[in-house]
């Protein structure tokens, strides 16, 4: 199932928390060879994890991490503006209507439906927050994964080659992408809404609640 958890909420899900940071180490340090820091417990964390980001996670039935990503508002510190503005023609992307997505990570063996579910989660969060765009920094080879799930980014720029290539991109937050993502993820609209409501609360009619 999809979960939307801020960093200060994820501690209540220790198994999910531990396996996410460990899978991130496996993907970004071991597999991609990025210069990220991995602590003594084998967890990959950086300074942006300390800013209380919102994580979107795929939780497996046994409570472990199947995949995840990290969202932060672009009005604060972001990887894109702090380190990758050479990929955006020098433009600092800042707007309360644009969030940044980073650290898209899949657990070993996670299927294509997990990628689709995670991107569905991004779109659900974006639509509910009335965002215009999501901006992201990602492993350039992920571009085809994003395209395959039906919501490909507009690539702003790419740095490096092969497995070192890092791209910046934009995803428009538009309702029209939702049906395709739902179908690629194999999730019904109702279930996706239910998962969103579990994290953010169900809308209850106020008129009835007050009476």
């Amino acid at each position: 199932m999809l979960r939307y958890l801020y960093a200060d909420q994820i501690a209540r899900h220790p198994r999910l928390n531990d396996t996410m940071f460990r899978d991130r180490a496996a993907q970004f340090s071991a597999r991609l060879g990025w210069e990220v820091s991995v602590d003594d417990n084998g967890n990959e964390r950086d300074g942006y994890d300390d800013l209380n980001p919102l994580y979107i996670l795929w939780e497996r039935p046994d409570g472990t991490h199947g995949g995840s990503l990290r969202l932060l508002p672009t009005t604060g510190d972001t990887m894109l503006n702090d380190h990758f503005s050479h990929l955006t023609d020098g433009v600092k992307i800042q707007s309360p209507l644009i969030w940044e997505c980073t650290r898209f990570c899949l657990a070993p063996g996670a299927g294509a439906h997990v990628s689709a579910a995670l991107m569905l989660g991004v779109l659900e969060a974006g639509l509910n927050a009335h965002l215009t765009y999501i901006a992201g920094v990602f492993d350039a080879r992920m571009i085809r994964v994003y395209r395959r799930v039906g919501w490909g980014p507009t690539v702003l720029g790419t740095d490096g080659t092969g497995r070192d290539a890092i791209s910046a991109g934009l995803w428009p937050c538009e309702e029209s992408y939702r049906a395709r993502l739902l179908s690629k993820a194999g999730i019904s609209s109702e279930v996706s809404n239910l998962w969103y409501d579990r994290s953010f609360g169900s809308p209850i009619e106020r008129t009835a609640a007050v009476a």
Partner: peptide, 17 residues
């Protein structure tokens, strides 16, 4: 020579500033 989405995001950043 940029995409329309890129242009929109540049305009949106400028709007905020």
């Amino acid at each position: 020579s940029i995409s329309e989405h890129t242009l929109r995001v540049y305009i949106e950043s400028a709007r905020f500033k």
